[in-house]
């Protein structure tokens, strides 16, 4: 087919240029903070008795950090595979709305579906926040190249970080080790607050923070689901009420 002069596809070298710009975007402050959270994760996985290969495999295949932390928690508590998958699936529902929000930004006029499905694997808090912030300033037909560079670099670099930390974790003094374990919750605490789109998100977060540990004491095993349903439902109810009161 002859090339359409108006909407011709970008050349391979243009794509490579934008891919590399995406790679560079991975080495930013949010990217480095994410790497620090993976330092904490490597310690967590080792503590749970996972081998180096299993830990690095988990980073590459699951990628989203909350899902991995939940999976490790399930392994630690001796959960069966269906129970573990269910808990991980619950903790990852948020990926759907994130991807829903990203796809219209990411998609070019001729982007094949399989490219979007492939790229969606890289969606987790950090790459999503970076993409939502920067994709707008990138030519539409090159956004998939940029995000491929950003996402793949974040995944591969953090697989490396996890492997290195796993190997040296035992030789760390306890205070440093404790500080590393605090990195993951602190990273989530701040980034989750920052990524909330509406006030309901903040209400849901505060309720979840309180309900999680509370329900863990009262109904262990149902704590995450319960906190999600009660906290999220209450936050949504507040959202509806405040909207009804607001003038149209």
């Amino acid at each position: 087919m002859p090339a359409d002069p108006v909407s011709s596809l970008p050349s391979l070298s243009t794509r490579r240029l934008w891919y590399l710009r995406g790679v560079r975007a991975a080495f930013s402050i949010p990217g480095l903070i994410l790497a620090s959270a993976f330092i904490g994760f490597a310690g967590l996985a080792k503590e749970a008795g996972l081998t180096l290969a299993q830990t690095v495999f988990m980073v590459g295949m699951v990628w989203a950090l909350p899902a991995k932390v939940v999976l490790i928690g399930a392994i630690l508590s001796g959960a069966s595979l269906p129970a573990a998958a269910f808990a991980v699936a619950l903790s990852s529902i948020r990926l759907t709305p994130m991807v829903v929000a990203l796809v219209p930004e990411l998609r070019g006029p001729k982007t094949p579906r399989w490219v979007l499905y492939f790229l969606s694997h890289f969606v987790a808090v950090t790459s999503w926040v970076l993409a939502m912030e920067r994709l707008r300033g990138i030519p539409r037909e090159l956004r998939t190249s940029y995000y491929a560079g950003l996402g793949s670099t974040l995944v591969l670099f953090n697989m490396l970080v996890t492997a290195v930390v796993y190997l040296v974790a035992d030789s760390l003094p306890p205070a440093v080790s404790a500080a590393l374990f605090l990195l993951t919750p602190m990273y989530f605490l701040t980034s989750l607050w920052g990524s909330a789109r509406e006030r309901a998100g903040h209400v849901a977060m505060v309720l979840g923070l309180i309900l999680g540990p509370l329900l863990h004491l009262v109904v262990p095993g149902f704590d995450l689901l319960g906190a999600g349903l009660i906290g999220g439902g209450a936050a949504f109810a507040c959202h509806r009420l405040s909207r009804r009161k607001a003038p149209a």
Partner: peptide, 9 residues
């Protein structure tokens, strides 16, 4: 969000 917050808590 509430669910992930529960994980953090």
């Amino acid at each position: 969000t509430a669910l992930v917050a529960a994980v953090i808590g």
